[in-house]
Design a protein around this nucleic acid. Structure first.
Lengths: 210, 210
DNA sequence: AGCATATGTTGACGCTGTCAAGATAACAAA
DNA sequence: TTTGTTATCTTGACAGCGTCAACATATGCT
């Protein structure tokens, strides 16, 4: 324990071994990702920023893809925490809870566009290159949402006639679509996004609802 | 006129000047795009496939981005033609027309995933790198869809209480979201897509509809 | 103390987009 | 027809990228 504490803050003495390169790389990658975008996030620049040689990261990540998966993994953890904050809130009418969830989803995407692209984009998923660790975080997130949809149906907020899985796929698809149109620069104007969300919520929830 | 006809089919005599390199490049690019994906579509491979030197394409496209925009442009033209085929069909009940349009949209994306990604993806739109020519084809497509939504509202198919622009943004967002989840490898299973589409259509159209 | 292992380094390779400079053909004007 | 301009195509070069191989150094266990 005390060894770890001593190792991490190597303030003035840059030693041959970094000590905590993996998490340092992850943090720096998150910053670079937010600042310059995924397009210009290169392992070489990242290593340079951290102050190690180009190939040092390869001792902590098999390749660039594994680094990206690790970043996405963190994103899912944080996102799930945000969502549960809303779901666990007590004394909230179902419609208001759904509203908060919907707007929260879009806000998360809008505030972290590059991260969102990594979490739900083709870079990772298209080539089936997702790490097992990433899958272990991502899949439960989806299922959690299906469970919430089922609850909303039972509460009379959403039409109970529709198959729960299909319904949650559609509602999620809508959130994903709006998020993507926004972060990909097609709905450049974020000022109308809230109205779009409310319109979608109207369409998905029953008028005579709780 | 007759000059052009003579120029194009340089069958056996490979001359210094290609004669019709621009469209040849575009065609080859479409093939490469479909076969190997946008990720591995490089100008060098493209030039090699066509049989010219690496830098020859630069005399017809300022840079790679302009080539991509030209491909996307073609995609919009074809897509618009497909859509108008459905819109102009006579004797179709509104709901059935909307159904065909929705399924047609998803099918187009599923059949041309890489092209769809180019047309509606961040590669082109995020950095505001879209050509004027591309904008001139893309924007009217959006507006055309808004017009159709208005008509569907007037016909009593969709809720007339919602703002037309917002409504079309949401319905388009849903189609876009489903399309993206499919082509990005998140909804890997295409067999359920039709059911998802019908579920969405149910949610967007009024029960007592024409 | 010695040795295995983890971690860091430089060198090299092939790939990419793109610029500069030169070669060749097409075309318009004289 | 000849001459000069322009469009088109060529090779050479450069910097950046991901990643492998070979080597250096520190850490930790026996």
């Amino acid at each position: 324990m005390s060894q770890q504490i001593e190792k991490k803050p190597k303030q003035n003495k840059p030693s041959y071994h970094h000590g905590d390169l993996r998490s340092t790389l992850l943090n720096a990658a998150n910053v670079l990702l937010k600042e310059t975008g995924i397009e210009s996030l290169s392992l070489r620049k990242l290593a340079d920023k951290v102050g190690v040689s180009r190939t040092a990261p390869y001792h902590h990540f098999k390749d660039k893809n594994q680094l990206l998966c690790a970043i996405a993994e963190q994103g899912f953890v944080h996102w799930q925490q945000d969502a549960e904050l809303i779901f666990n809130q007590t004394g909230l009418r179902p419609k208001e809870q759904y509203r908060q969830f919907f707007h929260g989803y879009i806000s998360y995407a809008a505030d972290n566009p590059e991260l969102y692209d990594l979490m739900f984009g083709r870079t990772i998923w298209k080539q089936n290159s997702a790490t097992n660790a990433l899958r272990d975080v991502a899949y439960p997130s989806f299922h959690y949402q299906v469970g919430m949809t089922k609850k909303w149906q039972q509460q009379g907020l959403m039409p109970s006639g529709e198959d729960t899985l299909r319904l949650s796929q559609v509602t999620w698809g809508t959130m994903h679509g709006i998020a993507r149109l926004l972060i990909d620069g097609i709905y450049a104007d974020r000022s109308h996004i809230d109205e779009m969300c409310d319109c979608a919520i109207n369409l998905f929830t029953l008028q005579i609802s709780v």
